[in-house]
């Protein structure tokens, strides 16, 4: 429900904080969905630091996966992941252009 003008704060100040995480963005639909396999992850956290959307889930100091509510599919995590070779912790399914 959108608020009426009478219900807004003076000066249009927004006293809510960090409520944007309620916005579930649909932009992943246009991006490439990264997949995560914890078996091969070395927990270097580079994917975490370079993710523009805070979509790398961390629990108990370990990377647990990807939050697809916020992931926009930019692919940085896959590109910046230092683990290369056949067994990659971050990859894009059926994508020949990425490696």
């Amino acid at each position: 429900m959108l608020k009426k003008w009478q219900d807004l704060e003076i000066g249009g100040i927004n006293f809510n904080t960090r409520n944007s995480f309620k916005n579930v963005l649909k932009s992943l639909e246009t991006g490439k969905k990264p997949e995560f396999n914890h078996e091969f992850c070395k927990n270097c956290f580079l994917c975490w630091v370079f993710c523009p959307d805070n979509a790398i889930i961390i629990e108990n100091n370990m990377i647990k996966g990807i939050n697809y509510d916020f992931c926009k599919g930019c692919g940085i995590c896959v590109t910046e992941c230092p683990v290369t070779g056949v067994h990659q912790p971050l990859y894009i399914k059926n994508d020949k252009s990425e490696s």
Partner: peptide, 16 residues
């Protein structure tokens, strides 16, 4: 903490 001077779409500009 508060956000002062937000960006506003047509949804809210008139009300502001």
């Amino acid at each position: 903490p508060k956000t002062v001077g937000s960006f506003c779409t047509p949804d809210y500009f008139f009300e502001h």
